[in-house]
Simulated scan of single mutants.
Amino acid sequence: MENLRKIIHNRRTGEQVVPSEPTDNEIEVFEESVLISEIDKYGFITYANRRYVELSGFPKKTLIGAHYTIDRHPDMPEGLFHARDEIVARKKVWRGYVKNLCRDGSFYWTLTYMQPKLDSESDIVGYTLTRKKAYAAAIEEIEKKYAALQGKAHIGHDFFMRGELYHGEELATNK
């Protein structure tokens, strides 16, 4: 798969980061790890917990203020992120398997939950992303499915819209 190597600009520090070329080196996410980040409504990282910083390989000062796509692996299909954005825009919780790219080109899989953060008027002001170790049995199947659903032709594929957590609807309300 082609790595677009889009330059990520950190709006806080002015630093420019070119994502690494992906390697075949997979990093293990430990069972007890919970990776948490928060982004503003424009997609810029405002918070990253210690475990997320360590696993990503990016210094915290590089992450905070950078666009959250700084760790997007090129194997990830556009349709997944399109569906995720539609789901969280409806103030729902999204769940999906995500392959993340580390600073050195290695990668790790997570089961990611994204939830909108709402102000007192129930307007979206940002998002919280919580990641945990992906279920190993699911990764092989997900990799095949993602490979088959690459490209713009699959943006609206129903498979991606299944990431909505109906049982989690109450989590994304202010009431």
Rank of each mutant, 00 (worst) to 15 (best):
N100W: 01
A66K: 03
E86I: 13
S20N: 06
E28K: 11
F58C: 00
D75E: 03
V53H: 11
I39V: 15
S33E: 14
I7H: 09
P59D: 15
A66T: 08
E32A: 12
A48G: 14
R95I: 15
D119Q: 12
R72C: 06
P74G: 02
T69Y: 04
R95H: 13
T46I: 10
W94H: 02
V93S: 03
T112L: 12
E78Q: 01
K60M: 12
C102E: 05
A48Y: 10
I45R: 06
I39Q: 15
R95V: 14
K41I: 09
F81R: 14
T13F: 13
M76D: 03
Y47I: 06
L35W: 02
I7Q: 10
G14W: 07
E54N: 05
W94G: 00
T23A: 08
D24G: 13
W94Q: 02
I87N: 10
L111F: 09
H67N: 05
H67A: 04
Y42W: 09
K41N: 13
K91I: 06
V34P: 04
S33R: 12
W109E: 02
V98H: 00
K92F: 04
K91Q: 07
N10P: 05
D40L: 11
R95K: 12
K61L: 08
G43T: 12
K41Y: 07
